[in-house]
Write a protein that binds this DNA or RNA. Structure first.
Lengths: 131, 131
DNA sequence: TAAGGTTTTTAGAACTATTCTAAACTAGTT
DNA sequence: AACTAGTTTAGAATAGTTCTAAAAACCTTA
């Protein structure tokens, strides 16, 4: 967990107890996709009690400091992805689960870089499947 | 406006006064992107008073009957697109406006049709620009 | 063209996800 | 150890959307 402290500091964030606990859940294994609610209940389930306000707070601050990426899938809730590299998503409509698509798996031609003089800030691709 | 009545009936919907007024706004000119709120205030501005509940109701029923397409851009609100053909979007972050991208303008390789045995139901691409 | 059954509209309440508030607490500095 | 700024918290507040149930409109049949 000492590396998590470093990770937070490197992102310019104070390693508080709550942020470390959340980081431990999010960043210790493989990449994952969470919602505020799923994170809150998973932590609660394992005996880690952090207020929902803090969960939201931390998800937002992690996102603005580049530790997470927010994904718009569904207007009814926000997903956060621990994979911050460029990539795309499959979305399983029945289970409401996400799966990463490696950027090399999907070629886009031409890859836009500008539009009307504005820079492209991100390219979001969601492939919805009926399962 | 008689053709709007036909359009609604063809979609299996009763052409009520409110639906016709909304259709007249949405389907009489070129394609557009609306939110419940923008539609409500545009109609109000032109003297057409339809309750917000009906606006939501009609947007949802139009979507489920194929007259509109819902787009997830932003978890804080839903956009509806009068263009129901396959296409993609530019999203202008500052103005929160959408612009259509013709499907031929962007090639995807390989174009996925299945994933884990499930059919692809849609491919949503949003290219965000900082303007 | 009137009656009757079904669908739609409406105002307002309810709900859900998220943010705000301001008081208590904690981390890092001196 | 004391100070200051940043963080957490419970609960209130807010925003977007859906629900409720009563009134109104639509459409069919007579």
């Amino acid at each position: 967990m000492i590396n998590l402290e470093k990770k937070l500091r490197a992102a310019g964030l104070r390693p508080t107890k709550q942020r470390l606990l959340i980081s431990n859940y999010l960043f210790s294994g493989s990449h994952m996709h969470v919602t505020a609610d799923s994170l809150y209940s998973e932590l609660s389930k394992s005996g880690v009690n952090i207020s929902l306000a803090t969960i939201y707070n931390v998800l937002n601050i992690f996102t603005s400091h580049g530790l997470l990426r927010e994904i718009s899938i569904d207007s009814s809730r926000s997903y956060f992805d621990t994979n911050t590299k460029k990539h795309y998503h499959y979305y399983y409509e029945k289970t409401a689960k996400l799966e990463d698509i490696d950027i090399e798996k999907l070629q886009i031609n031409p890859l836009p870089e500008k539009r009307n003089g504005f820079d492209v800030s991100s390219i979001d691709i969601v492939i919805r499947v009926n399962g």
